[in-house]
Measured scan of single mutants.
Amino acid sequence: KNAAQIVDEALNQGITLFVADNRLQYETSRDNIPEELLNEWKYYRQDLIDFLQQLD
Rank of each mutant, 00 (worst) to 15 (best):
E9S: 05
L38R: 06
F51R: 02
N32P: 13
L52E: 00
D8M: 15
A3G: 04
V19R: 01
N39V: 10
E36D: 10
T28R: 03
D50I: 12
A4K: 14
I49N: 03
L55W: 10
T16S: 07
N39M: 12
N12L: 14
R23P: 01
V7S: 02
L11A: 11
T28Y: 05
S29E: 14
N32E: 13
I33D: 01
L38Q: 06
R23W: 08
I15C: 05
L17Q: 01
Q46G: 06
A3E: 02
E35T: 10
I33K: 01
I15P: 00
N32Y: 14
D21N: 09
I15G: 00
S29A: 11
E35M: 11
G14Y: 04
A20G: 08
E40A: 06
V7M: 05
N39P: 02
D8K: 15
L24P: 02
N39E: 13
L37Q: 04
L24K: 00
L55Q: 14
A10D: 00
E36C: 07
N22T: 05
Y26H: 05
D50H: 09
V19C: 06
V19F: 14
L38V: 08
I6D: 00
Y43C: 07
I15D: 02
N39H: 08
L24F: 04
N2K: 14
E27W: 14
E27G: 06
S29Q: 12
K1T: 04
P34L: 04
A10M: 04
N2L: 11
E36P: 06
E35W: 08
L55M: 11
K42M: 13
N2F: 08
R30C: 09
I15W: 03
N39F: 11
Y44C: 03
E27R: 15
I49V: 07
Q13R: 09
Y26C: 09
L11F: 12
N12C: 12
E40I: 08
K1G: 03
T16L: 13
R45M: 15
K1S: 04
D47W: 06
N39Q: 12
L37N: 03
D47A: 15
S29M: 12
L52I: 06
S29H: 11
S29P: 07
E36I: 09
T28M: 03
L24V: 06
N32M: 12
E35V: 11
T28V: 04
L48Q: 00
I6A: 01
G14C: 10
E36W: 09
N12H: 13
N2I: 08
N32K: 12
D21E: 09
R23A: 13
A4E: 07
E40T: 07
I6F: 02
F18S: 08
L52S: 01
F18I: 07
Q54V: 09
D8L: 15
T16E: 08
L24C: 04
F18R: 07
L52C: 01
R23H: 11
Q46A: 10
R30I: 09
D31A: 11
A10Q: 01
V7T: 03
A4S: 10
F51Q: 01
A4L: 06
L37T: 05
L52Q: 00
Y43E: 14
Q13I: 10
E36M: 07
K42W: 14
Q5Y: 05
L48C: 00
F51C: 02
Y26S: 03
N12G: 11
L55D: 08
L55G: 11
I49L: 08
V7F: 11
R30M: 11
L11S: 09
T16F: 14
N12A: 15
D56S: 13
L24Q: 00
V7W: 07
W41Q: 00
Q5S: 07
G14F: 05
L11H: 10
I33Y: 02
R30T: 07
I33C: 02
D47F: 07
D56K: 12
K42A: 15
L38P: 02
W41H: 03
F51V: 02
L17S: 02
L52W: 02
I15M: 02
Y43K: 12
E27V: 14
I33P: 05
E27D: 09
